[in-house]
């Protein structure tokens, strides 16, 4: 697009900049607290810069780095495999439901949309996975439930519906089948949409701890989120007065406090926060494999 020198750009920058500050400020605090001395934070409250610098929170979280590194590996594996397969399956079906000339498309839309409204709920889903699928303690169960997420399929449909029918017809004229029309024409044309949805898929896998909480007890398969979530929720539970009444003797100073909590948040989010442009590119290239040849 042509460069437009305009004074109104200045105002846009001011407005967006102000919003950006609101978004970035909490992160600044999180980073600052995670590098602060716990006692100082407790005494003097939060600050945008550490008053007393300390790496204690990270030292504590990384005490047994073996498990954390292994969990990073599990999470990365699940996120990469899940989001590549998930994005592929979802964009394929999304293309099909944009085709209004295809009679079954309305039925398929409904079939995909319905689960957005009706879910089986915790107990039935758990019974189904454990008793029927027998997938407890497998990496598979961390991946397949999120492969096709209804609202992301519909979002993809939204992006794809902008493609003019004539382009698809020209594909027919070239003798291409629907499958290759999708991979060679439609997918490359919705690159930016795929990148965005792919990112959402990736984050969905990365951030999930619910599936692993339910189905994973094998240490070798514990993803990062569950590992850190557990550290925090255990501390949370032990802090409650309920717990005091059971009378367990634990040195409270050893429980993770604010600094550790913030360090946890950064250990989880940090890597993708900085890798996410790369993740987007990776996913788009992944799905548009072969498009360049055409």
């Amino acid at each position: 697009m042509s460069k437009r020198v305009n004074s109104s750009n200045f105002f846009i920058h001011i407005l967006l900049g102000a919003i950006a500050v609101l978004c970035i400020l909490p992160i600044v605090f999180v980073v600052s607290i995670s590098f602060s001395d716990e006692q100082d934070v407790l005494k003097n409250g939060y600050a945008a810069f550490p008053r007393v610098f300390s790496l204690e929170a990270y030292r504590m979280m990384l005490k047994s780095p073996g498990q954390i590194l292994h969990s990073y590996l599990v999470t990365t594996f699940v996120s990469v495999v899940g989001s590549v397969i998930g994005l592929t399956l979802s964009s394929m079906v999304a293309y099909v439901i944009t085709r209004k000339d295809f009679k079954a498309s309305r039925f398929i839309t409904l079939a995909v949309f319905f689960p957005l409204l009706f879910q089986a709920g915790l107990v039935p889903f758990y019974i189904y996975v454990v008793k029927f699928l027998k997938l407890k303690d497998t990496l598979t169960i961390l991946i397949i439930p999120y492969l096709v997420i209804p609202w992301l399929v519909l979002l993809l449909k939204g992006y794809m519906s902008k493609i003019p029918k004539s382009i698809i017809e020209s594909g027919w004229l070239d003798g291409a089948g629907e499958v290759s029309i999708f991979f060679r024409i439609v997918a490359p044309m919705t690159k930016s949409g795929l990148a965005t949805v792919g990112l959402f898929y990736f984050l969905n896998y990365w951030n999930d701890w619910w599936l692993s909480l339910l189905f994973i007890s094998d240490k070798a398969k514990i993803p990062l989120q569950l590992l850190l979530q557990r550290i925090l929720s255990n501390a949370e539970f032990m802090r409650s007065t309920l717990f005091q009444s059971v009378g367990v003797d634990i040195d409270l100073t050893k429980l993770p406090g604010d600094t550790a909590r913030m360090a946890t948040a950064l250990l989880v989010a940090g890597p993708i926060l900085f890798a996410f442009p790369f993740i987007q590119r990776f996913l788009v290239r992944g799905i548009t494999v072969g498009s360049i040849k055409g």
Partner: peptide, 8 residues
């Protein structure tokens, strides 16, 4: 995947 699966 198989390494992760057999780990424990």
């Amino acid at each position: 995947a198989s390494v992760l699966a057999n780990g424990g």
